[in-house]
């Protein structure tokens, strides 16, 4: 890791702290623990994948969106881009910070649940899933934030994403879509993300879905980065400069 990337990552953490985004994330983690502590021990393992999925998807997208929103508001991205730091390093710093924040939640909530309820699960699996799902949703968050004119439109963008990509899964859960057709839902990022998270909590997910999920999410993350985030960065910059 070069010194610029280290500096950018350090800067991201400092700002997450100063802009109270890290505190907000921590409060959400506390809420997860509180919620889980009220749930019956037998049901906790069924709820936790959903909690970690929520954190790695919505919280990640919102957190990265919020940092970009502040940078837009304060025009600081312009100044960063006239330093030797590249747009690759800039996005990588956001990715690393998102992953670290997500992992902090996984570790904190897991420790708390173990302490409170003695609940354990496949930690390594959850960590891998959190890294993969967070990476994808960092790219989604950055892409949505590029186009958002303000914080509200950014939230609407996230809600649209969730609604559109969760709707078919809801249809499958309610039986509107049959089991054979439901297998094809793995192409939906949220469905595959949910499969990866669930795999850490029991044997319910077919192995091919896990292998496909990691490959698919990695490919999607790279595709989004190279075709939706990186090429649009210059355009985003120009808009932020008032052009």
């Amino acid at each position: 890791m070069n010194s610029r990337l280290r500096a950018l990552i350090r800067g991201e953490f400092v700002r997450l702290n100063r802009y109270n985004l890290f505190a907000a994330s921590f409060v959400v983690s506390l809420f997860y623990v509180l919620m889980a502590s009220f749930i019956d021990d037998a049901m906790v393992l069924g709820v936790m994948p959903f909690i970690f999925l929520l954190d790695s998807t919505m919280m990640t997208s919102l957190l990265v969106g919020a940092t970009l929103f502040y940078e837009k508001k304060e025009h600081t991205v312009n100044s960063i881009m006239v330093t030797p730091a590249s747009s690759d390093e800039y996005v990588t710093a956001k990715l690393v910070t998102s992953i670290a924040t997500s992992l902090f939640t996984v570790v904190f909530v897991s420790l708390a649940l173990y302490a409170l309820k003695g609940v354990t699960y496949k930690y390594a699996h959850v960590i891998f899933a959190a890294v993969a799902v967070t990476s994808l949703h960092t790219m989604i968050g950055v892409r949505i934030a590029y186009s958002a004119k303000n914080f509200t439109s950014m939230l609407i963008g996230f809600m649209l994403y969730v609604t559109v990509f969760m709707f078919p899964s809801v249809l499958a859960m309610t039986g509107v879509i049959g089991p054979k057709l439901a297998d094809f839902l793995v192409i939906l990022p949220l469905e595959t993300s949910a499969n990866l998270m669930r795999a850490g909590f029991g044997p319910g997910v077919e192995p091919w879905k896990i292998v496909f999920g990691y490959l698919y999410i990695t490919a999607l993350t790279l595709l989004l980065y190279f075709f939706a985030v990186k090429p649009r960065f210059a355009e985003y910059m120009m808009r932020e400069m008032g052009v």
């Binding site: 010194s3 610029r4 280290r6 500096a7 950018l8 350090r10 800067g11 400092v14 700002r15 100063r18 802009y19 502040y70 304060e74 025009h75 600081t76 312009n78 100044s79 960063i80 330093t83 030797p84 730091a85």
Partner: peptide, 22 residues
Amino acid sequence: FEMPISFSKLTAMENLDFFRRL
């Protein structure tokens, strides 16, 4: 730049320190 550009919740020195490291 013409417009004021700084991380508003960081001190002046923290702003400079962030850029200095790049």
